[in-house]
């Protein structure tokens, strides 16, 4: 992926190969600016790649929009819509009549901790609730693949932990393929089946690891030796990349 900034080509992403099996939870971690959001934008069809292709379920999907659910780095709730109507937005755009979309969204709001707020406006929600609403909006769009770009990046530690468990439950309930971006190694290990570690300048994948901790996962897994070892391995990778960015080559 090459960007043209004031006529100067800037290689944001070196060739990157990401193969995500259906129904898996895959995380991308890497330093800021290594091109994680850019990968998502390309997959979602919002940015044409300079070279390369997006293939979904065996079919060419380069440059097509609406094929995957995408939760951008901000919650982007519309301030003039109620929480319920915000959550229903995706369905509405995809042709579900508003009333039916609301009927479908309402029970989910109740089930996932937004009950009683359906007729309030986003301003009235806490940060965690806003993220939940945005996530529900994304999941209610009927797509097999869901892209989540740092959904919990701006939350405090305690809310974040709650949201992670909530997301795991959602992942189980909805049975989607999830690609997840985060800066938080512990979060990545806790949630994922697979982790891709990236480095920057140019953005590239330097390692891939499989997390074979059993599901459903409980928070207690964090203190298990396997978890700690995998987390340490990841952290070391990221740390080394930070020290000597130029000399390292792709390990995966």
């Amino acid at each position: 992926m090459v960007f043209n900034t004031d006529g100067v080509p800037f290689t944001a992403l070196a060739p990157v190969d990401l193969d995500v099996p259906a129904g898996k939870f895959v995380s991308l971690i890497g330093p800021s600016g290594c091109g994680k959001s850019t990968i998502f934008n390309v997959i979602a069809g919002l940015q044409p790649p300079s070279t390369g292709r997006v293939v979904l379920d065996g079919e060419e999907a380069t440059g097509t929009i609406g094929q995957v659910g995408y939760m951008l780095q901000k919650d982007l709730l519309l301030p003039w819509r109620t929480v319920l109507d915000n959550v229903a937005l995706g369905m509405e755009i995809r042709g579900v009549p508003l009333k039916e979309a609301r009927d479908r969204a309402l029970p989910l709001l109740h089930r996932y901790g937004l009950g009683g707020f359906e007729n309030r406006y986003p301003k009235a929600l806490s940060g965690g609730m806003r993220q939940r609403a945005a996530l529900l909006r994304t999941l209610l769009i009927d797509t097999d693949v869901v892209l989540l770009d740092e959904p919990f990046g701006a939350l405090d530690a305690q809310t974040k932990a709650q949201m992670q468990e909530w997301l795991l439950q959602l992942f189980q309930d909805f049975g989607r393929t999830v690609i997840f971006v985060t800066h938080d190694v512990e979060e990545a290990v806790f949630l994922s089946d697979e982790i891709y570690v990236m480095a920057s300048r140019p953005g590239r994948i330097i390692d891939q690891m499989t997390i074979d901790l059993p599901r459903p996962r409980d928070r207690s897994v964090i203190s298990s030796p396997r978890f700690v070892a995998m987390k340490k391995y990841c952290l070391d990778l990221l740390h080394n990349v930070g020290e000597a960015p130029a000399s390292r080559t792709a390990a995966a």
Binding site: A44, V68, K74, L78, L89, E92, R94
Partner: peptide, 20 residues
């Protein structure tokens, strides 16, 4: 970004115009 959100869902230009 809100525009991108709409397009990521697969919205048409008319939908982006009227709803955003």
């Amino acid at each position: 970004d809100q525009e991108r959100l709409f397009y990521s869902i697969g919205a048409s230009r008319w939908q982006v115009f009227t709803k955003l």
